[in-house]
Design a protein around this nucleic acid. Structure first.
Lengths: 334, 334
DNA sequence: CTGTTAGCGCCTTCAG
DNA sequence: CTGAAGGCGCTAACAG
């Protein structure tokens, strides 16, 4: 290891006594290098532990074999997606680069465009946007959206059947005899959230139960933001006997709120969530929820993206995966 | 949006009628730009939706405010680490870039050095290596290792108390009356694995139970690799009444192997794992295990790395977090 | 076969 | 206060 810093192609060239161009050829297995030179350079490379800089290479060649997964934050949902993409990437020759900004969760709308702009054109050959809010179809690299937060768009998407899932959840509660069912919504600007709320309304209506607006609160999909509204719901004069939370994180908050108020689940309150993130099984009692096949959504996203890059997938492709009831311990019949 | 491709600093300059240097100054908030020019350029930037390319910028300035998390694969353990880093990064001004190669899990030893070399010096200002096997202390950027697979090294590390954890696991089994306790080990080349096996031996010895080598098998830490050895253990003439698996994934495999053989857990077999990944609560029955504070390990890693970059943390710092028994449903007294 | 010459998009002197 | 020139590490022509 001669130069203490990073070893560059120049160091290799100097040590081997050839030009950088020759080293580049060796690295990329190009023809036009004498066998003797080839092996000598190769030896120096191994010796120095040289590895070409992804950055410099990509700047020049505009091809990296790296797929970007852009997420707002590493939380239970996005990391499940990551697991799915990781499984699907094996053997494709691509590598994965998951990018996430710092804090400002929720606050920095438009993160997806920012990140895409920062990474695309050079670093990554294609991107998967996880739960993006705004999606411009115009980007210079192929892009796939997973669970986009707006309606149908120009780019391929993967999502799950939120509407049916929500109906499933409420029907389950109805079947158990519940009539006063609270709803902790997500965020009105998000498509999944709207569909889940619509499912709630639809299922109630089908059962002939009039909607009581006081039973609907904005939970915001996050642990902290849901705590307050959940507490309000539980402090209602006519407390709901069951709460359908728009995602597992807010369901977990609901259980915490209940515990804080001395209510036990499911004896005093039934709770059902949505997503089936692994964390949902960690609650006490384990959470009954609606599962989305999150990891599969991730792997399908990879399939779509690679297909898109190969030109074998139509940009108008939309994949919708089924949701299902996962009956654990947080609901009971009354 | 004029040019259909990516908008570069040149596009902004042309549109605003100034030179690229001026645009650069505006972006980086440098002095020496007239207020009028400044706001005009700023307007064009917003208008065009320009965002500087991380690649080009980093190549030149060698500073990106991006921290790299290098992992072999996105699986339950590494994604928990990711969650911890994501939480810790908020408000620091840094962004996160998690990099993972394609397939070849386990097979491609030395991935950490390869990735580090590809990304460092340019793309990332510092790196966290998750469960690396080889760790050269010499790198041109600050590096922290989480749960390194070799003994103490020259760089700051975060790990958890594997030895005590393993002893805890076996003592729990002993307390329940088990005497024939099988052990599904990890990989002999990994430090954590060695310590967990040592804990197994130590606890047995302390209880005056001689070690039976036929009860120890190599599980390899992965779902697939553990299935065979677990089945062997269960097919033994003198079947163990309990199995301590070196991590949760192999414990999950053990439960599958038991189910395939018609044995029920915990009635016919007690199983205890290690790690407490969220998935461990998803098994039927939920897995009793030893918890490592994985997310905290991630956030401590970030703290250490940032400290290292600021020069406020000594490179010889080693943080060891406690392990604890999480008693769920997969063990019973005999 | 090998070296030289241009840039990729950006930032940083250094003159004007 | 602004523009022109150089270079970060690398690859793709094109000469030699």
């Amino acid at each position: 290891m001669q130069p203490s810093g990073r070893v560059t192609i120049g160091d290799v060239a100097r040590t081997a006594g050839v030009s950088v161009a020759t080293v580049s050829k060796v690295i990329n297995g190009r023809y036009g290098v004498a066998a003797a030179t080839f092996s000598r350079v190769q030896e120096v490379i191994d010796d120095l532990g040289y590895e070409s800089s992804l950055v410099a290479r990509s700047l020049r060649s505009h091809r990296t074999n790296v797929i970007g997964i852009l997420v707002a934050e590493f939380e239970p949902f996005s990391t499940e997606i990551l697991k799915g993409t990781s499984a699907a990437i094996a053997g494709t020759g691509y590598e994965l680069l998951a990018y996430s900004g710092g804090g400002r969760p929720g606050g920095n709308v438009g993160w997806e465009r920012r990140y895409l702009s920062r990474l695309s054109g050079t670093l990554i050959d294609g991107a998967i946007l996880v739960t993006p809010t705004v999606v411009d179809a115009d980007s210079n690299i192929p892009v796939v959206a997973i669970d986009p937060h707006t309606g149908p768009t120009g780019l391929p998407t993967v999502d799950s059947d939120n509407l049916t899932g929500a109906i499933l959840a409420v029907e389950h509660l109805l079947r158990l005899g519940h009539r006063r069912i609270g709803f902790l919504s997500g965020r009105p600007d998000l498509e999944s959230s709207r569909l889940r709320e619509q499912g709630y309304r639809t299922a109630l209506e089908a059962a002939g139960i009039p909607l009581d607006p006081t039973l609907v609160r904005l939970g915001g999909y996050r642990v902290e933001s849901a705590l307050g509204p959940a507490t309000e719901l539980l402090n209602l004069e006519q407390r709901p006997t069951a709460i359908f939370a728009a995602n597992d994180l807010s369901a977990i908050s609901t259980m915490r709120a209940a515990a804080a108020l001395g209510l036990s689940v499911p004896e005093d309150l039934s709770v059902i969530g949505f997503d089936n993130v692994p964390e949902s099984a960690l609650t006490q009692p384990p959470l009954t929820t609606i599962s989305q096949p999150i990891q599969e959504m991730g792997s399908r996203g990879i399939d779509l993206l690679i297909g898109l890059m190969n030109g074998t997938v139509d940009p108008g492709t939309h994949v919708r995966l089924p949701t299902a009831l996962v009956d654990r311990g947080s609901c009971r019949a009354i």
